[in-house]
Simulated scan of single mutants.
Amino acid sequence: MPMVQIPLRIWRQRGQTFMFRGHAIRYWTAGHGEPLLLIHGFPTASWDWHYLWQPLAQRYQVIACDMLGFGDSAKPAGHAYSLLEQADLQQALLAHLKVTQGVHVLAHDYGDSVAQELIARHDEARIDVASCVFLNGGLFPETHRPVLMQRLLLSPLGWLIGRAFSRDGLVKSFRQIFGPRTGPSESELDDYWSLVETHRGPRIMHRLITYIPERRVQRDRWVQAMQRSGVPMRVIDGAFDPISGAHMVERYRALIPNADTVLLPDIGHYPHTEAPVQVLKHYLAFREVIAASCRQMACS
């Protein structure tokens, strides 16, 4: 049975705002229970989670924001965007909401890198990450295969490419990365584009894309933390994705001890919108394994 979509218009009405280092950040929260932080990808926003939002809110306190430079949050033109700062933002949001217990994380794409930074900080006793599930993302720079638009944004002409970026460009990029039968509708593409173009978003895309070289700088620190931190992790991955599909999962299995991975055939880069029922099933199964282990160890 298909999941119920939250229309973008309704999603936007339910958002709230807090200030982070002088910038207005839009965020959403719902439900009760253990905190679950949802971290979106590039170039979209937290509306990506709308299919999963209500089912997860029935079980957990779900929390999400449009990160700095994304969606309906501030998009300062001269800012030096950083994954490390986005991790600071996530921690600031948790502090704003007075979340003090261990937080579970569900992340996608760009958000995977932010989650990796949070795991590294967990390893450094700077945050308590209770678990982490990664959806398709560049967990290892050596396996990341950027699409043409990403490569162009990284070029010396990136500033010009970004300013010329249009809905047609977004559609062309998305057609390369979704599964053969699970692509977004025209209405959904309109909504994705609305989130990108809000606050003149295209003019900063060449600044946001610097996350790709930043991943290379942080690679060893992040991977080592994943290998030794003890944070329960799972990858749920659309195998059809040319950017971070089955080839990334193969690398994950080679590098991460006792790798817990789920491959979704014929699903592309956005499994939470392409196959939300499957993602929910595999996410809840992962959480049940954690809960069972906790009960066995008499966790409080």
Rank of each mutant, 00 (worst) to 15 (best):
T210I: 02
S229N: 09
H199M: 04
D128W: 10
G268H: 01
T17Y: 07
S113I: 15
R21V: 04
R228M: 11
H269Y: 11
F174P: 07
Q176R: 14
C294W: 13
Y283L: 00
W49I: 03
P55C: 03
A298Q: 13
V103T: 02
H269K: 08
R200H: 15
L280T: 12
R203Y: 04
S293I: 13
A292Q: 11
P180K: 09
F70A: 13
W222Y: 14
P265I: 06
S187V: 09
F286V: 01
Y192R: 11
A92P: 01
R167N: 09
V147N: 06
H122T: 06
R253Q: 15
M205G: 02
Y27W: 09
D88L: 11
F140L: 11
H104M: 01
V114K: 00
A87G: 06
D72N: 10
T29N: 12
V249A: 04
T29C: 06
L153H: 10
V289K: 13
P180W: 10
Q224P: 12
Y27T: 10
H206Q: 07
V114N: 00
L38M: 14
G102V: 01
S113C: 11
Y110G: 07
G201Y: 00
A64N: 02
S166G: 09
R219W: 12
R203H: 03
Q218T: 13
K98E: 06
G15N: 01
H247N: 03
I243A: 10
V171Q: 14
R228C: 14
H247V: 03
Q61A: 06
H144G: 03
R207P: 00
R167H: 09
A164L: 15
A246F: 10
V223T: 13
L93S: 05
G245T: 02
D266N: 12
R26G: 03
D168V: 08
P43G: 03
G138E: 04
M3N: 05
F70E: 14
C294T: 08
Q150A: 05
I236H: 06
D168Q: 12
K281D: 14
H269L: 00
I6D: 06
L118N: 05
I204P: 05
Y283G: 01
Y110Q: 05
A120W: 12
R295H: 11
H122G: 05
P276K: 03
E250K: 14
T210K: 08
A254P: 12
I10C: 12
I25V: 14
R59G: 03
V147D: 06
E34P: 03
V99Y: 01
A115D: 07
Q227C: 06
R145M: 05
L84M: 08
L118Y: 01
F134M: 14
E186N: 14
I267Y: 01
G15I: 00
G41M: 08
M67T: 08
S113P: 04
S293D: 15
L36T: 01
V129N: 00
I209N: 04
S113F: 12
K98Q: 07
T100K: 15
F286R: 07
R287S: 06
R121A: 07
L118M: 08
I10Y: 14
L135D: 10
R21D: 09
E186W: 12
C299I: 02
L106N: 02
F18R: 05
V105N: 01
R151E: 12
V249Y: 04
F70P: 11
R9Y: 13
L36D: 01
M67P: 02
